[in-house]
Structures are given as C-alpha cells and as structure tokens.
C-alpha cells in the first residue's frame, strides 16, 4: 500500500524542515516571553504555540494529505474547545458586572447580606423616624446596604 507517491507516505526532507521550523518557533516562544508585551503576552504566546501545534498536526500527524474525515473530526473538536474556553470566560471574567455598580462581586455581596441577616439587630437601629434618635444623627447610614 505504501508505494512512493501514496498520500500517506511521510516525506523525510519535509519532516526535517518541519522540525527545523518547530525549533525556530520554540526560540521565538522563549524570546517573546522576555519582551514587555503587557496584556498582549498571552495572545502572542498562544498564537506561537498554535502555529507550532498546526505544524505538528498537518505534517507530523499528516492531516494535510489524510482522509478528510480525520481532519473534520479534529476541527470539530478544536472548535468545541474554543467554545468551551470562550463561553466559560464570558461568565467568569464578567461576573458581577451586570446590574452591579459596586466593585464587589455578586458572591461577595451575597455573603455580606447573609452575614447581615445573621447579625443581632440592635433595637436602636430599628428606629426610623428622625424623632427616634434625637442624639445620634446619621447612625443608620453605616448599616444601610447599598443594594
């Protein structure tokens, strides 16, 4: 089945070229890590790593010349991985942002409210009308919740 020219056969010079490219990309991976890229550091690192992974998949794993159904399997899988990561981050990265103007997360606010409920309420705090506390102006503002 493996006569030369058959699509499955791995071409030796190609393997060495790909290997060389992978080594160069590894050096680039290390080099860019020392550049002051700030918030771009992670996207750049992922981009270089993805390039390396693509080379391995296309040439070493020979997906380039392989039966397309294998490529389809792999592509669908990787799309699912990006959905998994992106949609999880849509949640975790923006928790507490919606309908919440304080810097606290929803979790922290809920915890605070629970703690407040557990506290014994001082009868003094139950006074509402200004006439109820003629001697301590503004005492309620401390316990009043922003929500």
């Amino acid at each position: 089945m493996a006569d030369d020219g058959h699509p499955h056969v791995l071409h030796k010079p190609t393997l060495f070229k790909v290997f060389g490219a992978l080594i160069v990309l590894t050096i680039i991976t290390v080099a860019v890590a020392y550049l002051p890229l700030g918030p771009l550091a992670m996207p750049v690192a992922i981009a270089v790593a993805s390039t390396k992974a693509s080379l391995v998949v296309l040439f070493f794993m020979a997906l380039k010349d392989d039966n397309p159904v294998n490529g389809l399997t792999f592509t669908i899988g990787t799309i699912m991985v990006s959905v998994f990561i992106a949609f999880t981050l849509f949640d975790t990265a923006f928790r507490g942002d919606l309908g919440n103007v304080s810097s606290q997360t929803i979790e922290e606010i809920e915890k605070e409210q629970e703690e407040a409920q557990e506290q014994q309420i001082d009868p003094e705090n139950l006074r509402v009308a200004p006439a109820d506390y003629p001697d301590q102006q503004g005492a309620t503002s401390e316990t009043g919740s922003e929500n």
Partner: peptide, 13 residues
C-alpha cells in the same frame, strides 16, 4: 502538542 501549550503558559508568562 499538549506540552507545546503548557510550556509558555506555565513557565514563561
């Protein structure tokens, strides 16, 4: 391939 991703993420940045 897994290591290609782990390496920069854990060691470099």
């Amino acid at each position: 391939i897994v290591w290609i991703f782990l390496f920069p993420m854990l060691y470099l940045i």
